[in-house]
């Protein structure tokens, strides 16, 4: 065959990457902005302005304690980003080296590592996170840790799967013939190749983390009051959804937008990276 039909049409198109990146940048900017400025002090309680519907002063309305919902949503972003981000970093820091190692070592060492990954996967993630959070006490940090544990095998598998294929490629054999050590090949040849996949997966896990953090916070196991958190805002809004729907809508939308931004970015990156990987193979 001299003419290959495109192995895969671009799954979603460059638009998704643009939208995803645009939205992600927006969310990051808002998160950063909220560190220095919000319309109101997010913790300021105004007893005279309880449960006010959105108006020109409070764009997202106020909550049961008279706090400005827009400010709370903005300030809550930092928590979501920090928890999901640390969980991803935690997973990366452990999962990637393990995956590289497993890819390089076939046989029982690979088996042991992958079995360990299977073992983690065998645990119901959210429930185990609940258990871990209960064991260590509910806090944002512990939520990140609990979620991070489940990111380890995810990254491990991605790296190991792609790395395994690379180890049988000629240029790696050439590197071996050039006397490169296993570790050096892993770092110099394998890692740069799987990095793209890792970035994609990191975006996906970030999105998963934001949703999971919201779930944990919803159960009261995430960031603690008065620190603003989207999941807890949703939990608290639940009973007021009839009288003050804005309390449920805006944090929900914030979670939705963040997860959407990250998963669009991940998808878009995958599509950008995939054809190149295909061409190389």
């Amino acid at each position: 065959m001299t003419f290959a039909a495109p192995k895969r049409m671009r799954a979603i198109g460059p638009r998704s990457l643009k939208i995803g990146l645009g939205l992600s940048v927006f969310i990051i900017l808002v998160t950063l902005l909220a560190l220095v400025w919000t319309p109101f002090d997010p913790l300021f309680q105004n007893p005279d302005a309880r449960l006010m519907a959105p108006d020109s002063q409070h764009l997202f309305g106020t909550d049961a304690l008279g706090r400005d919902v827009l400010s709370l949503v903005m300030a809550g972003a930092a928590n979501s980003v920090a928890v999901a981000g640390s969980a991803v970093i935690f997973g990366l820091a452990i999962g990637v080296p393990l995956g590289l190692w497993a890819a390089a070592r076939s046989g029982w060492r690979d088996d042991v590592v992958m079995r360990g990954g299977d073992l983690v996967f065998a645990f119901p993630s959210l429930l185990t996170a609940v258990m871990l959070a209960a064991a260590t006490g509910p806090s944002a940090f512990n939520a990140a840790l609990a979620l991070g544990v489940f990111n380890i095998p995810v990254f491990m598998r991605v790296v190991r799967g792609a790395g395994r294929g690379l180890w049988s490629r000629d240029f790696v054999t050439a590197a071996r013939a050039a006397g490169q050590s296993t570790r050096s090949i892993s770092i110099r040849h394998i890692l740069p190749h799987v990095l793209g996949l890792v970035v994609v997966q990191a975006a996906v896990q970030f999105a998963v983390g934001v949703a999971a953090e919201a779930g944990l916070s919803y159960l009261g196991l995430g960031a603690q009051p008065p620190a603003p958190s989207w999941g807890r805002m949703l939990a608290e809004s639940q009973t007021l959804i009839g009288t003050a729907p804005w309390l449920a809508i805006f944090p929900g939308l914030a979670i939705f937008a963040t997860v959407l931004a990250l998963s669009l970015t991940g998808d878009g990156l995958r599509d950008r990276l995939d054809p190149r990987l295909k061409r190389e193979v």
Partner: peptide, 11 residues
């Protein structure tokens, strides 16, 4: 060594 596929033997 030199391999068959020139595309695959270089990183």
């Amino acid at each position: 060594p030199v391999f068959q596929d020139p595309g695959a033997s270089l990183d």
